[in-house]
Amino acid sequence: MTVILGYAATILIFFFTYNIFTLGLNIQFGYAGILNFTVITFMAVGGYVSAVLVMPHADTANGIYYILGLGLPWPIAALGGVLASGLLGLLIGQIALRRLRSDYLAIVTLATGTLLYGLAGNVTSMFDGWQGLFNVPQPFAGFRNWTPLGYSIFFVIMAGIIFGLLWLFANRLYKSPLGRVMRAVRDDQDVVEAFGKNTFRIRMTAMVIGCMYIGVGGVLTIAYITALSPAGWTTGETFVVWAALLVGGRANNLGAVVGSFLVAVVFNESTRYLPQMPSHPNLIPDIRYILIGLAVILTIWFRPQGVIPERKNTFYEVPLGKDVNAKPGQTSLEADLAKVGE
């Protein structure tokens, strides 16, 4: 029973963090149309920075190197990680969002991600290179004498609350005038610009908020797993988040959640039970990617708007009833419509 509960807790935490990644990408792509092809880099930066802030000084005598090692309390370190992700988003945005659109922007983000991947792996003194960080202290671990299961359940609740807050804010943003103008930028940037709105600022806002969301996911990931190395954030991982958003339905936060459930939880966990083949150790992860790719293709083929598409926004209207008929020479709306023709 304990094993099953522990497993369920791990899956739930995994689900919550993926939800946060997908929400972040949804704000960038679903709301503002920004093609961020290096989602996982922001997760890594959030995770790494929070880890080096919370960990003690690096044990260089044993060949372990990383920067900082300030031993800060976890909430402050977590905040630092999230801010670092946002800052990286701001830097990439300065280059990529000023002049570039869609596909070119995608290339710049992909290139930046690859660059930082190589940097993190090869510059050992930063985050211990390819070996990565491990033994990262877990948040509130010394708070009381946790049993492993008790701690997992505590973590589920914490991750759930954080996800809940981020979910509420993402929805508030969507419904707000800012969210609306982000969607207008997504639909036609030039027109928004012609209407006197600074589209660079609007896209940058979406970029940074999205990166901070993804950073939160990264902070939670490293806090629960207690380790992160470059092998854990390869380029392919970015497209798992993308697949989750596209399958679930972009520009709809519920779609983002359904997508990360289907892609990140169902596919990931179901493939875990496939029999291992010792001669082909990479077979199972490859099958996982094939399944995810298939899901994306089928979605785009049969339901391009995703499982739960963006919903139509309607507004509370004070009835114009009296005005409708009061206009001179305008007997009914139908008459007016007929004039529109076509």
Partner: peptide, 16 residues
């Protein structure tokens, strides 16, 4: 014509 295709007519106006 460059409308915001994935927004409603009413939203097209409000956002402007």
């Amino acid at each position: 014509s460059r409308e915001y295709p994935e927004m409603t007519v009413l939203e097209n106006l409000i956002v402007s």
